[in-house]
Design a binder for these strands. Structure first.
Lengths: 203, 186
DNA sequence: AATTTACTTTATAAAGC
DNA sequence: GCTTTAAAAAGTAAATT
């Protein structure tokens, strides 16, 4: 894999040394994050564009690939959080976020807004929740989005709150702490989102 | 034709200034015990005023940066007050400071809610990342400012160098939001 | 669980690393 | 790029009470 770029690497010297380092790092992240080839190819494409625009100068290659990978995840609606990428790459969440915003600005990229419904599966599997609860949480978020309570809120917090409500109504014994931990948010955030959900859904 | 009149409030003005002479920051530190000066941390000395409530950074070059004012005029007054205090404290300052406004930050209330996710799709040069920040970041080209939009209908405008540019930015955006049907009035 | 404090984003100058 | 300063918006977080 990634042979296409490796072969170019032997032609153009300084630029391609950068590519090699970048793509070996990308390959490493691929396994850690378990993302598909399509996402990796998109990340490579974005990174190449960034390199062509000279955005790599004076910047950390690792931080830029990690950001390009996050951008690729966002573009393909692959639910991976900045926290996920940060843990896999050992780069601070804040630095990845800053590089990601730079990529959006400089490459004029438009990303779809993160859909909290797509966050449900990851949280549910981490917390070990049933299929039935996942379906209920999805329904809850669908109604919630129609009532526009999601604006400005962290999609993971919204998904976590919906799952917690779904657990309660389904009688699945999970605490707020369990769901919060799986989602990477605090119990306070789940409670706050729950308040809005209660109003929007007449719970 | 806008349905509401935006309420604009200037929250912070940043001004640069110069007295065009070298300054002895250690001497200032000796005569004004309340200043903060940690040259290994930052080359500027922090000179705070209670009124107008501002913080002015003073550099050895005689250049300064004044922050915290609520208006352009207040910023000019603050710099004058700082120079006046320095002189009263025995620090020789030959010329009066030449002040330039560098940035104006304003908060705005449009009086109606904004459909943020739709705005994220239709507004050019905009970024909306609720996992990172609850507001949508929009870069306006003329006047060259950056506006943060919140679903509540409140805004933050920054980057303007003149107060009229704040109003022009807000009016431009307000018209654009109504034109694209992104405002929700109750 | 309510408060308080604090951090996220935006722009901007200053001198130096 | 970073360091420091100020201020708002609304969300999230952590420390106290």
């Amino acid at each position: 894999r990634l042979r296409t770029w490796d072969s170019r690497s032997q032609v153009h010297e300084p630029v391609d040394r950068n590519f090699r380092q970048a793509f070996s790092e990308l390959d490493r992240l691929k396994d850690k994050l378990a993302v598909g080839d399509a996402v990796i190819e998109k990340a490579a494409y974005i990174y190449r564009k960034a390199l062509e625009k000279g955005l790599v100068r004076g910047r950390s290659i690792s931080a830029l690939i990690a950001s390009a990978l996050y951008a690729a995840c966002r573009d393909t609606e692959t639910p991976r959080t900045l926290k996920d990428i940060g843990q896999a790459s050992n780069i601070k969440r804040k630095d990845i976020a800053r590089c990601y915003r730079l990529l959006l600005r400089e490459l004029n990229l438009k990303m779809p807004v993160v859909d909290p419904i797509k966050c449900i599966s990851r949280i549910a599997s981490k917390a070990g929740l049933s299929e039935k609860t996942k379906r209920k949480a999805t329904k809850i978020l669908q109604t919630a989005e129609e009532n526009k309570i999601s604006a400005g809120k962290d999609p993971m917090g919204l998904a976590a709150a919906a799952l917690y409500v779904a657990c309660v109504t389904n009688g699945e014994n999970k605490t707020q702490r369990d769901v919060a931990e799986a989602a990477g948010v605090t119990e306070v955030t789940i409670r706050n989102r729950y308040k809005g959900l209660k109003v929007a859904l007449n719970l | 034709m806008p349905q509401t009149k935006p309420i604009v409030s200037v929250e912070n003005v940043v001004a640069s200034a110069s007295v065009d002479q070298k300054m002895d920051l250690n001497e200032i530190t000796r005569t004004f015990p309340d200043v903060e000066y940690h040259p290994d941390q930052f080359p500027g000395l922090v000179f705070r005023l209670k009124s107008p409530k501002t913080a002015t950074l003073i550099f050895t070059s005689g250049k300064m940066v004044c922050t915290g004012s609520k208006s352009e005029e207040m910023a000019r007054k603050a710099v004058k007050t700082v120079v006046q205090k320095l002189r009263k404290g025995g620090i020789k300052v030959k010329k009066d400071a030449v002040v330039e406004i560098q940035n104006i930050v304003a908060s705005i209330n449009l009086g109606g809610k904004i459909h943020l996710e739709q705005a994220a799709r239709t507004l050019p040069r905009s970024m909306y990342e609720p996992e990172q920040f609850p507001g949508l970041i929009h870069r306006m080209l003329d006047p060259k400012t950056v506006i943060l939009l919140f679903s509540s209908g409140k805004l933050v405008c920054t980057g303007a160098k003149k107060e009229p540019d704040v109003y022009r930015s807000v009016n431009n955006l307000h018209a654009l939001l109504e034109e694209k049907d992104l405002m929700i009035y109750d």
